[in-house]
Design a protein around this nucleic acid. Structure first.
Lengths: 260, 260
DNA sequence: CGTTGCGTTGAAACATCTCAAAGGTTGTGG
DNA sequence: CCACAACCTTTGAGATGTTTCAACGCAACG
């Protein structure tokens, strides 16, 4: 329990990392760390939102299920993203573990009380919510007016940026440009608004174009980054559009994005 | 200038209406009211966000334009909605007048300064941003996994709820169930992620089903609300999902939604 | 009275979905 | 070590929904 906040003092984009250290003691007091296996439902759609928190490791998916069973993933949460819904009694979407996840979680009510006393913290959450809103609207553009090849390419491009931003921020290393997709074809399809077959076909077409090389179904080598961006139909793509301002300090990837 | 805040003291969902009256004096001091003709660009994508404010009358559209000219409307702002982007220097989307609009606007920087001094106001903005995020994600479901007939039906249903909530809140009247669509077919298409031809065909198919009657291209009589909801594929549809918590006080429409 | 802008309608082209089957990998038990 | 099942991914071919392109209708306007 003593080292709950250790992770958040590191260099990351979490709310806690953005907030003065003396807040950590208070946050620590109401928080605990838990892990969940892939596939676990952390919070159900329509139920009361009991917990909020931060993703430490793994990926969460926000899922909306229609009455007839159709599902749409409306958001993916990676390490340092906040999950849960403050100031609302009902979860508008389910929160599920897309991979094995490690979460730092706190009871929602107690966290809200804490917010009311610490406006700096609430301000940081506003900033992140605004960025998430922008990112969500950017994703609406993908869903609304891009074809399936473009959607898949855009998804891979965004994932690439995101992963390399995190890595570089953490260790400053220049790794080989490999994207690790932490999702099944079915999850990708649910996020991209299509079917798993179309996702599979699109990935192979992107590989045929020479932009990527398929290492295994979940790992791709970025062979030609400008080509990938071109296929995504979003040469305008820069990390901060989908990831928020906290991802913009990475010169290496910025160069890559601006190369087209 | 003296009555800038008059509107916001009425019964509406605006930030100002939610905040103690003594704030109005301060907000008034930095605000002014302006009208813009339909089609005017109020803020350009990628430019600095100079103003924020509230829609008093009319409809704003948030537009993202891709390099090749494709456009997606990622949000529509109605009376009492806030526009602009606090705490960001660059507008991620263009703000355009979809109809003639009347706006109460304030310089962004000065408004941010005001926010830093009045946490109640910032809190209200957080609440609204969270609700907008939920609404945006709900719209992602529409774009991601509903067919064109369902999208158009859902759009009409949401508009119906929204208009009647506002009207009923304002005057408590029980008007005939007429939806007024404040958008051209092209704008509807850009919002729904399709073409204007498909929008037109879908509207006529909905009319063929008997759910609506086309009075003129922008006015529809709701003949069978349950049928409209059924066609939308979202019988789960309640106003607060797309409109935020401030629309939930209307018993009349809630009965309508829950009738299915 | 022609022009302009917007909405509707039709028919062919196209992208994506659906259904079906095959291929590959992983883990388990014989 | 092999056989087998379970699961995920890939591939194929026909069905379907949507787009595209073109023409037409209609009202507002100069």
């Amino acid at each position: 329990m003593a080292d709950v906040c250790q992770w958040c003092r590191g260099s990351n984009r979490s709310v806690c990392a953005a907030v003065p250290l003396h807040f950590h003691e208070e946050i620590r007091r109401i928080s605990h760390i838990r892990t969940f296996e892939a596939g676990t439902t952390i919070a159900s759609e329509g139920h009361e939102a009991l917990f909020v928190g931060t993703v430490l490791r793994g990926v969460l998916r926000l899922v909306k299920t229609l009455a007839d069973g159709r599902q749409q993933i409306v958001g993916l949460l990676f390490a340092s993203d906040m999950f849960g819904r403050v100031f609302s009694d009902e979860m508008p979407f389910a929160i599920e573990a897309a991979t094995k996840v490690e979460l730092c979680m706190a009871p929602r009510r107690r966290f809200e009380t804490l917010l009311s006393r610490h406006h700096e913290l609430e301000h940081e959450i506003l900033i992140r919510t605004l960025d998430e809103l922008d990112a969500g609207r950017n994703w609406m553009v993908v869903l609304g007016c891009q074809n399936m090849l473009e959607r898949v390419a855009a998804f891979l491009a965004i994932l690439t940026i995101r992963e390399h931003v995190l890595e570089d921020a953490a260790e400053g290393s220049e790794r080989a440009a490999i994207v690790e997709v932490p999702l099944s074809r079915a999850d990708m399809a649910a996020y991209l608004g299509t079917t798993l077959e179309t996702v599979s076909r699109s990935i192979h077409r992107i590989a045929d174009h020479g932009a990527i090389e398929i290492i295994d179904p979940r790992q791709f080598l970025i062979k030609d980054w400008p080509a990938l961006l071109r296929l995504s139909g979003r040469s305008d793509l820069t990390s901060h559009q989908f990831l928020g301002r906290f991802s913009g300090h990475d010169d290496n990837m910025r160069t890559l994005s601006e190369a087209c």
